[in-house]
């Protein structure tokens, strides 16, 4: 049985995640007038039309591009050694400390409470077309999956093969992958909630909403 309290206590010890801000590609990096410890915002607005805080500008082939904060938080670390220098793609230029929101804590807990169906190999995953249609109409929380059901399409090296779901019958409670993104082998694709555990899951959620205090 899941010990929610202890997991919650565990998370409370470090109620944040440290995100690496990386150079999206090569280029010359110039930090904006920003310091370690400064707070930053993610993009916001009804349509995400207001961009997040600019951390740096990277210029490649005379084309300057802003590197924006993708999460709300503060700058734990700024690698100023890269200022005004050429960087390779994927270099960590800053660390952003993001305090977990209620939804994110729920997300972490659910990963432990739900039955996870993992990616068997590194590939891109899609829902099978008929499932995809249902998902788009009714949302994933209304779809029951059964053992042996053809649920996914695995796409790699330009080939697509079907993948059947194996595990207990239940509702798709969470979807962990994005289309067009590679998923590493062993990473969860979906979280399944067997019907008899629905009440436990809902208990988890309500407890987080009561007990978790969001930090700035």
């Amino acid at each position: 049985m899941l010990n929610i309290s202890s997991i919650l206590e565990e998370i409370k010890k470090t109620p944040y995640t440290d995100l690496s801000v990386r150079a999206p590609h090569t280029g010359t990096l110039v930090f904006t007038d920003i310091n370690e410890g400064d707070s930053v915002n993610s993009s916001s607005g009804q349509w995400q039309e207001i961009p997040g805080t600019k951390i740096a500008t990277i210029t490649r082939e005379k084309n300057p591009k802003p590197i924006l904060a993708t999460q709300k938080g503060f700058l734990q670390k700024l690698h100023m050694k890269y200022n005004n220098s050429f960087v390779e793609a994927g270099v960590e230029i800053a660390v952003l400390r993001h305090f977990l929101s209620k939804q994110e804590v729920v997300h972490i807990l659910l990963q432990k409470a739900l039955h996870l169906f993992n990616a068997p190999e590194r590939a891109k995953y899609y829902f099978a077309p008929d499932i995809d249609k249902k998902l788009k109409i009714s949302g994933h929380k209304n779809i029951t999956v059964t053992d042996g059901m053809d649920l996914f399409i695995v796409s790699r090296m330009k080939r697509e093969i079907p993948l059947a779901y194996h595990g207990p019958e239940g509702l798709i409670y969470e979807v962990y992958f994005e289309q067009n993104q590679n998923v590493d082998a062993g990473k969860p694709l979906i979280g399944i909630c067997p019907p008899d555990q629905l009440s436990i899951i809902e208990d988890v959620i309500s407890r987080v909403y009561h007990e978790w205090q969001e930090q700035e």
Partner: peptide
């Protein structure tokens, strides 16, 4: 030797060529 984001992006290659 340089790490780039994609072999398909000409900008990456030319930026490395210059660097």
């Amino acid at each position: 030797l340089y790490r780039i984001s994609s072999y398909h992006d000409a900008n990456e290659l030319l930026s490395i060529a210059d660097a």
